[in-house]
Design a protein around this nucleic acid. Structure first.
Lengths: 337, 337
DNA sequence: AATATAACTGTAAGCGGTTACAGTAAATTA
DNA sequence: TAATTTACTGTAACCGCTTACAGTTATATT
């Protein structure tokens, strides 16, 4: 590969001039600029990023840590991130940490050694430990899809409110016995999706003067099968709910099929509501009424914010809550009784 | 951040020794090694990748170009890639090219300037132009999920054979009127998924002495709605197929719902077969009989091959065809008549 | 015409590492 | 004990770029 020296020699100028041309410095005469451009063209020269990074202490790269890219939810977020990074000439280094603390820190360490300009971090739970690491190493970071009590920039949604609204919607339809299928709760740490959504669910019931039945609260693993099994159990026995709120669409799909396999029909006997509004939620039968999360926007806005931070631009708000909304389709109707 | 000089000073050795320690050179005394390690520990020193990359002309980074990460199919492939890259201490730079030639070349150029050690390339159609670019720039590349007639390493599946097997399966069930919903054909270029699968479909019919009806061949866009519309049209009018083969699961889901919305039932009236075996294909009702593509393995094997190439290791086979298989579920049964 | 200014241009010192090569001290060998 | 070998260690050049600073022209000013 041609280097800056080759170009300088061929163009008959110094390497400083070549560098200036490629950095759009105004300190170059038009004549010199043309000579350099011509020489570069001839040699197929493009500046080497690693060399430039070393000299400028800037890599134009953003590290991206997500739990699992093969999950459609994160894939959509990442797409949003990549799109805006591409616009601003940033590159993305992708890391799958599987929500494992150890892997996360390992990746953070590695991204640091690679001098990434900043990190977009997406995890289930942003702990104090995370906070400390980012703070001590002075790493520019924005949290995607998650809020936190720590002083860290983020863009996410209000999970509590979203679940609250969802359950309220079901109640407004006339439902009084509403089940929930939530995700793993760990140690009931705050600000996990599952915890917040579960809280929102409970609060909605309370605010409407409805009782909370433990039998109607089931934990699953965010997978289809998990949703299926949880719903199956919930539907066993005498008293069953008239509606089930699954906090992910995938689990909701499992729930719908569990309803059918229990000899009941959806939505006639049991309404099922999802969360996320993934592409396929309109493909189920019945199509899924769900809470829509703006996944692409979460990614795009987070990336935009980070890039602004890197450029030292003014930022109005470091903690952004994007709006969720209820998408009404066919899986929820008023109960018969 | 501490540099190698800081460590050298603190440890009372030269930077060469520090470098040797971090490169596991045997040319260091145990005493010196300990001093260096201690000093590094104390300063929190880790070698800078950009500097190292410049000196060694190796970035330990692999460029990854896919059409669209938000498509679950590619997301799964990417996960496979990332997992093995992580094992071998490689990093991934992710690029979404949307199957646009221009974006692809732009990204290739950019990855080159970043001195990535190699590229894993996933596109719909690998053209001569692509071949030339990779060849001229002497870029190490492996194609994922795609075969080609050019002399380029790849790991993919045999789309022709896969479609052939799928249609054969339907025929073995007793179907004689089988429709296909394929993807965009462009200019009928070779080695596009769609073209190969369409050919496999036709060949299976021919080999079984069945007629090919144009009416039963519909083009769609790999989306749910596209599959739905294509199936709807196919089901209109007098003569309709008894089975529909959609070359992606998503389109198959559309087809299933089109069957229902036509007042027919699946699989009793119309069998529907998919392609890919994405996670959700077991979540549909009826669950989807489909051709399984080993997406994760495609990614993992491609990454492993590229890394071997980068290490100059021996490689048995530069062109690997992974096995597909028919996954029998409930959406296909024998026709009534 | 001499001087000041503007407009470029080049030299050289980094950026943080790797590594060839030369040097030194200790251990072996003769 | 001297010579040779072994086992480290350090010096310095280099990787390809940026940029401060010191020129060097050409142009404008007095």
């Amino acid at each position: 590969m041609a280097t800056i020296d080759d170009v300088a020699k061929l163009a008959g100028v110094s390497i400083a001039t070549v560098s200036r041309v490629f950095n759009n410095s105004p300190l170059v005469s038009e004549k010199a600029r043309q000579k350099v451009l011509k020489a570069a063209e001839e040699l197929g020269y493009k500046p080497s990023m690693p060399a430039r990074s070393l000299a400028m202490k800037k890599t134009n790269t953003i590290g991206l840590i997500v739990p699992d890219i093969s999950n459609p939810y994160y894939a959509e977020v990442v797409r949003g991130i990549e799109d805006v990074c591409n616009i601003y000439k940033y590159n993305i280094t992708l890391c799958n940490a599987d929500n494992k603390r150890e892997k996360e820190f390992q990746y953070i360490e590695m991204l640091k050694n690679r001098w990434v300009d900043g990190i977009i971090f997406h995890c289930d739970y942003f702990s104090e430990e995370h906070y400390e690491v980012f703070k001590n190493d002075n790493i520019k970071v924005v949290l995607a899809g998650r809020t936190t009590k720590f002083d860290v920039p983020y863009v996410g949604i209000d999970n509590f409110k979203a679940a609250y609204d969802a359950v309220n919607y079901l109640i407004s339809l006339g439902h009084k016995r509403i089940g929930i299928i939530h995700g793993p709760l760990d140690d009931m740490k705050e600000t996990i999706d599952s915890v917040d959504r579960l809280k929102g669910y409970k609060q909605a019931l309370i605010d409407n003067g409805l009782p909370i039945y433990d039998k109607f609260i089931k934990e699953a693993n965010f997978k289809y099968k998990g949703g299926y099994n949880a719903a199956m159990e919930m539907l066993k026995g005498e008293m069953r709910p008239t509606a089930i709120f699954a906090i992910s669409d995938i689990m909701a799909m499992g729930a719908i099929n569990a309803v059918f396999d229990s000899g009941l029909s959806c939505p006639e006997d049991i309404s099922v509501m999802g969360f996320d509004n993934i592409d396929l939620s309109e493909a189920t039968r019945p199509s899924l009424t769900t809470v829509s999360q703006p996944m692409y926007e979460i990614g795009a806005v987070a990336a935009r914010m980070l890039i602004k931070m890197l450029n030292g631009e003014e930022i109005d708000d470091y903690q952004i809550i994007l709006k969720h909304k209820i998408v009404v389709r066919n899986s929820c109707i008023s109960p018969k009784d």
